[in-house]
Structure formats: structure tokens, C-alpha cells
Amino acid sequence: MGNRAIYIIRENGENNIFSVYHGANGLSPLLRMFQAQNLQESLSQPRSISHIFEHLDYDGAYQNPRLDDADMFCKRIPSAEMPEYNKAYAEHSEFEMRMVFDLDQNCFMMEYNPNCPWYRTMGSFSIDLDVGLENVQKLLAHAEQRGITDFGRLLAIYQRSTGLEEKLESARGYMRFEEYLDSPQAQENRERYWRLFGHQQELDEETVEEMEER
């Protein structure tokens, strides 16, 4: 099924935009940027971060030429197709998140798509990019010490340590509340309440009339 996201990398005054099939979470973007920056330092030929990002596979390795799209972490979006992607994000839940790496301003922002009921109350979060990458480095060092290699466990640790877990649980609770309000059970409860309320009104009116008669 995937959890799709749009990644935007602003580098040297230009926007480079990517579609990511498995990347709508709090850890993937910073982890991939951490990998890309490490690769940039190790490559013999100078390459931009945007170029390296486009050539990352799911293991964080640099593949040039690219492998099949299904084996790569992201796919570049041609500028001519961006209006279509922006519309999909604004009106539907196909893309669950949007990430912006502003390399020129040292800023990282992630935004949860409110069209996804489970993210309705999440909003967006920003952090200095170097701080975010330092957090990832600490997470990876912690994981290495404890022999943790599973991404799901890493994500859980990251979300707990950053407070995202609590916010995500609150958003899921709000989604469940919305689902309840639209459920047949809620409608039945509302109808029962109004029947009882109407009956109580009748009793109150009868009581008032009796007192007036006395």
C-alpha cells in the first residue's frame, strides 16, 4: 500500500521535488538526508544533495545509474507535472505528508495532510536541519549499541523521543471520535436523547400547570 509523500529539496535557490512511495513518517526524511550528506562527502566526484537523493535505493546506497523505480527510494517529479501533484495533495489523501528541506536556510519542515483523517489535527512541524540530523545521528548510535536494525523499532523510538507519538495518538483519537459521530450508534443515541429530552419537557410543563392550578 505504501505511505506516500512529497519531498521538496531547496538547494542553491532551486526546488527539486520528489515523489516518495514509502516515506510519510517523521524519521524517513531526516534519515535519508543524513545518508545523502554522508554519501556526498564520500563520492570522488562532487554531486548535489538533490542528485544523490534521486539515486538512493531503499538501503540508502547510491545507485548511478538508477535501478528500476520500484527499487529506488524516490522519483523526481518533472516541473510540468507539479500542478497535478499539488492538486492531489490539496484535495485528496493519496499523499499523506509533504517534506521541505531548505538547505540554503538550514531548515526542515514536515506537514501532515489534513485530508487524511488520521492526521487531521497534526499540522506541521519545523526544526533546524542540522539539529534534526544530529538527532538522527544520536538515534543511529543508540540503535547500533543495542543491535537495533528494524526500521519500525527505530521509528517508534524516534517518535517517542520527539513527542510525535503522543500527537499521533491524539490525532487518531480525534479520527475515532469523528467516525463515532457519523456512526449509526451515534445517530441512535442522539435520537434517544431527544426523545428523553422531549419527554422531560412534557413532564416539566405538566408540573408547572399543576402548580398554577393550586
Rank of each mutant, 00 (worst) to 15 (best):
Thr162Ser: 14
Gln40Glu: 15
Met1Leu: 12
Ala88Met: 13
Met97Phe: 04
Tyr174Lys: 02
Lys75Cys: 14
Gly2Met: 12
Met110Gly: 03
Glu96Ala: 13
Ala186Arg: 07
Ala141Pro: 06
Tyr62Lys: 03
Pro46Tyr: 07
Glu84Asn: 12
Asp130Ala: 08
Asn64Trp: 15
Leu56Ala: 11
Gln200Thr: 06
Leu133His: 04
Ala80Asn: 05
Tyr174Leu: 04
Ile127Leu: 10
Tyr158Trp: 05
Glu178Met: 15
Ser42Tyr: 04
Glu206Met: 15
Trp118His: 09
Ala143Asp: 05
Phe34Lys: 10
Ser48Tyr: 02
Gln187Thr: 01
Ala70Pro: 00
Val136Asn: 01
Gln185Lys: 09
Ser126Lys: 02
Ser50Ile: 07
Met99Asp: 14
Asn135Phe: 02
Ser28Gln: 02
Gln35Met: 13
Glu213Asn: 07
Ile157Trp: 14
Gln63Met: 12
Ser19Lys: 00
Ser170Asp: 13
Glu212Lys: 13
Asp130Gln: 14
Arg66His: 06
Asp150Arg: 08
Tyr193Phe: 15
Met110Pro: 02
Val131Leu: 03
Ala171Gln: 06
Gly163Met: 05
Leu39Thr: 08
Glu179Gly: 01
Gln185Cys: 07
Gln35Thr: 08
Gln185Ser: 11
Phe101Gln: 04
Ile148Gly: 02
Ala90Cys: 05
Phe108Asp: 03
Arg146Asn: 12
Phe197Asp: 11
Tyr7Glu: 06
Asp104Asn: 04
Asp204Trp: 10
Gly163Cys: 06
Tyr89Ile: 02
Ile77Cys: 04
Leu140Glu: 03
Ile6Glu: 00
Gly26Tyr: 02
Ile148His: 00
Glu166Asp: 10
Ala143Tyr: 00
Glu202Ala: 15
Asp128Lys: 14
Tyr174Ile: 00
Asp59Ala: 10
Cys107Met: 12
Arg172Glu: 07
Ala36Asn: 12
His92Val: 10
Leu43Ile: 11
Glu91Asp: 15
Leu168Lys: 07
Glu179Lys: 09
Glu41Ile: 08
Glu209Arg: 10
Ile127Thr: 12
Ile49Tyr: 05
Arg66Ile: 09
Glu202Asn: 10
Lys138Val: 05
Phe34Glu: 08
Leu139Gly: 04
Asn3Ile: 12
Arg195Lys: 07
Ile9Glu: 05
Glu134Pro: 00
Ser93Asn: 13
Gln35Leu: 10
Pro184Thr: 00
Asn25Lys: 02
Leu196His: 14
Glu191Tyr: 01
Gln40Cys: 08
Asn15Val: 00
Gly13Glu: 06
Ala5Trp: 00
Asp128Gln: 09
His142Glu: 15
Gln40Ser: 15
Gln187Pro: 02
Glu14Gln: 09
Ala90Val: 09
Ser183His: 10
Ser93Gln: 11
Ser48Asn: 02
Ile6Cys: 04
Glu134Gly: 01
Ser44Gln: 03
Gly163Ile: 09
Asp204Thr: 13
Asp104Gly: 01
Ala186Cys: 15
Met175Cys: 11
Gly173Ile: 03
Met72Asn: 14
Arg98Tyr: 00
